[in-house]
Design a binder for these strands. Sequence first.
DNA 1: CCGGGTGTGTGTCCGCCGTCACAATCCGGG
DNA 2: CCCGGATTGTGACGGCGGACACACACCCGG
Lengths: 233, 233
Amino acid sequence: MPVPLAILQSFSLLHGLPADKLARLSERMSERTFARREVVIKKGEHGNALCFLLEGRLQGVDFTVDGREVGLYFVDPNDYFGELSVIDGQPRPEFVIAVARSRVVTLPRDEARTLMFSTAGIAERLTTRLARRLRLESAQRTLLGLPSPAQRVCAQLAQLSVRLAQGKVVIAHAPTHQEIAIMVNTSRETVTRVFQVLQARGVLKRDGDQFQVEDSRYLNDVAEGRTDPPKAT
Amino acid sequence: MPVPLAILQSFSLLHGLPADKLARLSERMSERTFARREVVIKKGEHGNALCFLLEGRLQGVDFTVDGREVGLYFVDPNDYFGELSVIDGQPRPEFVIAVARSRVVTLPRDEARTLMFSTAGIAERLTTRLARRLRLESAQRTLLGLPSPAQRVCAQLAQLSVRLAQGKVVIAHAPTHQEIAIMVNTSRETVTRVFQVLQARGVLKRDGDQFQVEDSRYLNDVAEGRTDPPKAT
DNA sequence: CCGGGTGTGTGTCCGCCGTCACAATCCGGG
DNA sequence: CCCGGATTGTGACGGCGGACACACACCCGG
């Protein structure tokens, strides 16, 4: 049941915590592995634990009442999630689903609350993090305002890509077309077609479980309307 | 320059604050009136004050790079806004624009920060409020997943409507079609057409500067897909 | 009482993209 | 190593909603 201290130290939320507190947290935490497509948090539940992602990738998703899937955000390793219910005690606002095999550590609500509100500095770290999330969500909302699906796909790809030390730009844990589609409000087929064009132009290349972004300029140009949205020639 | 204490007491964020602190805040605050369409907060600025809305209505908006307007949220009286920059010191994430003549009270950043982080109870109130905003934003994002514009308009109207004491359901400060259009990612014309049908069916009625919602059931049914999206007969 | 700006109403038209239907691959687990 | 489900690829079609172009209605201020 307890989680090794070494692991706790990798969570930025807990940086600088005194050893005794860490030890106590370690006691109360537990780890679990989720297979791809498994549900980590179920919308509407009251389970209210705070969760940390060790490795893998998760996606926050919701469903419109007519059953259409909507992608809200991705969670990457060393980040935490599920804070909202810890804070306000309301039911889980959305589903969180593993899009890759993932290891998750959970901390029960009572313990998480004392951590948040009775530990010097953590409260400020938490609000800062909530603020960042709000900024991300409204950036995502703005992205959805782009008129053409192709633009939205490119913008989303630009958002997901990471510049490595060697100057390579890469998207790790290559998301499926479907996962992208629900993030940018379009159909899976449209995403596939956009990918076809991007790969034909050498902008994007599949490489095992990641995408190589050969021409990140192009992605940004399309996203920001400087270049016309690509269409099949 | 100072703002009357009576006004401060109407802000729920400040409830229960000791009189001396309230007095101090009152000294440092200032009030300003904004005309319709005036910009209250400009995206990218570093002005970083915390703002309270006394009366009127504001809308958070952003623009896609190709100039398309995107509506993010509405602000109603006695609520506060502009917290993000106060918290993280980053530039303003979006525009906030008055959609009706509005009175706004502002508090400089340094004062707002001490209020937030060194005043018992306020920090928790603040995170709870950030949590609510996150929930609202993802609800709005889910709304955008609805396939038909008509559904989205109905869902948005349902969201905006308020049930009065007498059982009447009403939307105050009737938003313009344009304001709704940018919230639900559609064109102004489409909103107009949906309104036509809704009014023809007696679901909605204009009454001065508010909308009477005669049949809120219908709005919810359409929003949730139980009834077909209305179209001109 | 007039005038202009802002909001609303409506027609037409075209292109795009969502949907459906299938084929072709890929991939992981037994 | 093989099988089955998940993922990707592609064609055809049809409808719907965005863009454009006006007309009109409304409201406030001068």
